[in-house]
Amino acid sequence: MPEASNPNATLSVAILSGKGGVGKSNLTLNLSYALFRAGHRVLLMDFDVGLANVDVLLGLSPEKNLQDLFRPEVTAAEVMVPVEPGGFDFLPAASGVPELLEMDDDMREVLFQKLNGVFGGYDYLMLDLGAGISPTVLSVAAMSQMRVLVVTPEPTSLTDSYAVIKVLHTQYGISDFHVLVNQVERVSDTQATFARLSAACSHFLGFEPQLIGGVRHDQALPDAVRRQIPLLRHAPKSPAALDIVSGAVRLHRVRQQRHDELLGGPVLGKIPTIRK
């Protein structure tokens, strides 16, 4: 990938899933690391306010988290944690905090008003959202400039991912989705899995998502989790790592294609109005 361009052309990427256990947080972390390693400034934001775990994947114990940002005296800079020098930073979430899980529009507005000032210093804002269709997940996904659904070949993952797409489409009018297929045994599984989801969207919703790629099942990934380091540092030549790098390249192409419209625009849009 080419070197990072104008820092104000920040692409916000919401990474979400229909169900838990599909490897969403791991993929978010490693996609972020791949983009950083290619020369881009990346802010990884853990927004899984129900079951936050990116800090565990990184082996970090942050002193502050998103919950602290609701205190007037706490700044975004105090909450951010450097992962790598030179432009890879992390915003940790709080796990199991009911107020954050049921965050209303006013709370989100307070939070993002505090964060908007730092977002523009990055090329990518990577948002690890919770699984499912909670109001917080849906609203932040709708505010983001790009949405990536992580799915696996399991029928339950496909069914739940379709439900997420359907709700975002019917409630917020969104029809721009990308799909990343995880835990595939063969390269052909990627296309087969994507084809099933795409066919359902085309038939029932009238549009098709776009494919980011597939990530092969790889024993190196759970090994990296146990070591609490990104897979791309632990085993950069492993099959899954190479697949993740390919996915990061495709993400960067989206940012290149949308570069002009991103310049000077909001990294996260206004809190959307739900359709009646």
Rank of each mutant, 00 (worst) to 15 (best):
M1I: 14
A4S: 13
A4R: 07
N6P: 02
P7D: 06
A9K: 05
A9V: 03
L11I: 04
V13A: 02
I15T: 11
G20H: 11
V22E: 11
V22A: 11
V22Y: 13
N26H: 09
N26A: 15
L27P: 09
T28G: 09
L29T: 11
L31E: 00
L31P: 03
L31H: 05
L31A: 01
Y33R: 15
A38V: 01
G39W: 04
H40G: 08
L44H: 02
V49K: 02
A52V: 05
A52H: 03
V54R: 10
V54K: 10
D55E: 08
L57N: 01
L57Y: 05
L60T: 00
P62R: 00
E63F: 04
Q67D: 06
Q67M: 10
P72T: 06
E73V: 14
E73Q: 15
A76W: 07
V81I: 11
V81G: 06
P82F: 12
D89Y: 01
D89V: 03
A94L: 03
S95K: 07
V97A: 12
V97C: 03
E102N: 14
D104S: 08
R108F: 11
V110Y: 06
G120Y: 12
Y122D: 00
Y124L: 05
L125M: 04
D128Q: 04
L129M: 13
G130W: 09
P135Q: 00
T136Q: 15
S139R: 14
P153A: 03
P153E: 00
E154F: 00
P155I: 06
Y162W: 04
Y162G: 01
K166R: 12
L168H: 12
Y172N: 04
Y172T: 07
I174R: 15
I174T: 11
S175H: 13
D176E: 14
L180S: 00
V181D: 03
Q183W: 10
V184N: 02
R186M: 13
D189S: 07
D189M: 09
T193A: 10
T193E: 05
F194H: 07
L197R: 08
A199W: 03
A199C: 02
F204I: 02
L205H: 07
F207E: 10
E208R: 13
P209Y: 10
G214Q: 04
V215M: 07
R216L: 15
R216E: 10
H217S: 14
P222D: 02
V225E: 00
Q228T: 07
R233Y: 12
P236D: 07
K237R: 14
K237M: 12
S238I: 11
P239R: 15
A240P: 09
A241L: 11
L242E: 13
V245M: 12
S246Y: 08
G247S: 11
R250E: 10
R250H: 10
L251A: 06
V254P: 03
R255M: 05
Q256M: 03
R258V: 01
R258N: 01
H259C: 01
H259F: 08
D260N: 09
D260S: 08
L262W: 02
P266H: 01
G269H: 04
G269F: 08
P272R: 07
I274P: 00
